[in-house]
Design a binder for these strands. Structure first.
Length: 278
DNA sequence: GCCCAGGTATAAA
DNA sequence: TTTATACATGGG
């Protein structure tokens, strides 16, 4: 099925390649990806781009989801109810560097990704580069996910929980394989509970995620920001540390207010594009 | 060979 | 409590 969504403040290139997600691919003017068990290509048609109308062309096995469920799913994924025009105005008023960051990389939206996919993806991201992160995640989906139509879904934690380190060698994930297994098992046997985390304060949610091996501040904050839509989460990494020291000496995430994570994403993109060293 | 990549666990100071 | 090193793998 094919349908259209009105989504202001969305630049597909910026949003899909800013490092918040790892499974979208660009092909001849269209972006191809999988959300849950739903595969789609999305694009702005020439006649729609000025009106912020996104075309979503969904392929799925017959009747996995109803038409209205599909529209709900993709509306939620792009978080269309959140007003990014307002958020960006607020952020730009905080500091000139944020204003510059927002202007330079226009229109990044924080996607509402599945919590498990976000957690697992950012466990894989540690001490790793984006190209290889994508490679490992693609292996993970092909080897252990379900075939949707042409692509594969992200494998469930239940499925991975029953595998062994030996099984995961095929991923070439290195030392992270052990962390993936630990995460899958702890969530499967309820030692870490996503439903509880949704109700927790940010500090409590972070501590809960730290119970998983290989999950530290970076991975936990990314999981909360991208998987739980906690826009106040603030995943500081080496590049962001450089940026903070350089542009915001002495400041912490509270300086950026309730949309710290959104600010971080824009600043990160600015720094990455500038290829700042030191 | 060496260094780095959207870090973290572990040991040692 | 802070600081150093190993960790798998692949690319530059």
């Amino acid at each position: 099925m094919i349908f259209k969504l009105l989504i202001p403040d969305l630049d597909l290139m910026e949003t899909f390649s800013c490092g918040q997600c790892f499974r979208w691919t660009y092909n001849q003017g269209k972006w191809e990806g999988v959300v849950d068990n739903c595969e789609a290509e999305v694009y702005f048609a020439d006649s729609d781009v000025l009106n912020n109308i996104l075309t979503v062309n969904v392929s799925q096995k017959e009747n996995t989801y109803s038409g209205s469920d599909v529209i709900k799913m993709w509306s939620n994924y792009f978080d269309i109810c959140t007003n990014y025009t307002k958020i960006k105005e607020n952020l730009m008023s905080i500091h000139p560097i944020i204003a510059e960051a927002v202007k330079k990389s226009n229109n990044i939206r924080i996607l509402r990704q599945d919590p498990w996919e976000a957690l697992c993806s950012f466990i894989i991201s540690q001490n790793n580069n984006i190209k290889r992160i994508k490679f490992i995640i693609q292996n993970l989906c092909i080897c252990f996910g379900d075939k949707v139509v042409n692509k594969y879904s992200f494998p469930s934690y239940e499925k991975l929980a029953n595998l062994t380190l030996e099984d995961l060698k095929i991923l070439k994930a290195g030392f992270r394989a052990n962390y993936i297994l630990d995460a899958a098992r702890k969530i499967s046997n309820n030692k870490v509970n996503f439903e509880e985390i949704k109700k927790f304060t940010i500090d409590k949610a972070l501590k809960e995620l730290y119970n998983i091996k290989g999950v530290g501040p970076k991975v936990a904050n990314c999981t909360l920001l991208y998987g739980f839509n906690r826009l106040d989460a603030f995943p500081i990494d080496t590049w962001m540390n450089k940026a903070l020291k350089m542009y915001f000496p002495g400041k912490d995430s509270s300086f950026f207010g309730p949309f710290a994570g959104v600010a971080q994403q824009y600043i990160f993109n600015l720094i990455r594009n500038k290829r700042i060293q030191n």
